[in-house]
């Protein structure tokens, strides 16, 4: 049997099942249903976007749709968000977010791919049990881990301002730990789709596992890794809990800083609204520009049933 890299599974142009299903469904009802869902998904966000441009008093007293009947725009909220964060502005916190996110995405994905490879194509005792355990550990709520991990980091000297890299290690480590179970589970699903013959024949030719992993598997898994990378990026970027517990205030990500910005007890909706959009921009750009890889990556692992 010849081997086709699955990353290139051709997308049938004419005759996909849903397309056929749709043809009969294509009544105005089907389009209407899709349209209704799309509207339902957009309107709330649009409300927030509009609110972020409305003056404080308006935001707090009237609904955002009043802007269409009583137009009043202001950039004041954004100005406050950018200037009102102490002497430094928001920029350092965006940098912190990047410094936290980049390693916290790359490292767990690479580790997970390695582990997924071993679980799929290597033989060692206790393999099934280990895999089940890792899968099951997805369920541990992060809150449970906070105190034990903090104790550990303090003992290892990874916590606080005097720690190496200003305390970033505890954040990188935590995000890596929390990401691994789901990453291994999902990537293992993709990994198993790679035809076994590919690995068998390479083994026959005397290739080591490391060689197979780096030369054969890695390129094939690239799209799937990118797909999971996007999800992991979104989770780390939007995380608040881990940052608050393990991050010192000098390395807070933008999300934590924006949360603090909203006043002592947090009812400055106008500032929160603009803040939410500021922190949304980068993930949005990342997703939109990588959307192509995302779909392709998921396609690579698509299950043949």
């Amino acid at each position: 049997m010849t081997v086709t890299p699955i990353a290139q599974v051709p997308v049938a142009e004419k005759l996909t099942a849903p397309a056929a299903a749709k043809k009969t469904l294509t009544s105005p009802w089907a389009s209407l249903a899709a349209f209704v869902i799309a509207v339902f998904w957009t309107v709330p966000t649009a409300g927030l976007l509009i609110s972020s441009f409305r003056p404080e008093h308006d935001v707090k007293t009237t609904g955002w749709w009043h802007i269409f009947t009583h137009p009043s725009f202001t950039f004041e909220n954004y100005r406050t968000v950018f200037s009102g964060t102490g002497e430094t502005g928001l920029f350092p916190f965006i940098v912190n977010s990047i410094a936290i996110t980049v390693p916290a995405v790359i490292i767990p994905i690479f580790l997970a791919t390695m582990a997924a490879y071993a679980f799929a194509w290597m033989r060692f005792p206790g393999k099934d049990l280990l895999f089940i355990m890792i899968f099951a550990l997805q369920i541990v709520p992060i809150q449970v881990t906070l105190v034990p991990l903090l104790n550990l980091y303090v003992k290892l000297g990874l916590q606080g301002q005097d720690a190496p890299a200003g305390g970033f290690y505890s954040l990188w480590l935590s995000h890596t730990m929390f990401a691994l179970p789901l990453a291994i589970f999902l990537l293992h699903n993709f990994m198993r789709e790679i035809p076994g013959e590919l690995i068998e024949s390479a083994r026959m030719d005397g290739a080591t596992h490391v060689q197979i992993f780096l030369r054969v598997i890695f390129p094939l898994m690239m799209p799937a890794m990118a797909a999971f990378g996007i999800l992991q990026f979104l989770w780390v970027w939007n995380d608040l809990l881990v940052a608050l517990v393990f991050g010192g205030f000098k390395i807070y990500p933008i999300n934590a800083q924006l949360a603090a910005l909203a006043g002592t007890r947090g009812s400055d909706w106008h500032l929160l609204a603009s803040g939410a959009f500021v922190s949304l921009i980068i993930p949005l750009i990342v997703f939109l520009s990588l959307q192509r890889f995302f779909v392709r990556g998921l396609l690579a692992g698509s299950v043949k049933g």
Partner: peptide, 11 residues
């Protein structure tokens, strides 16, 4: 909430 976590966590 955080101060309790930090105190318990030795940080």
């Amino acid at each position: 909430a955080q101060v309790v976590v930090r105190a318990r966590g030795g940080n």
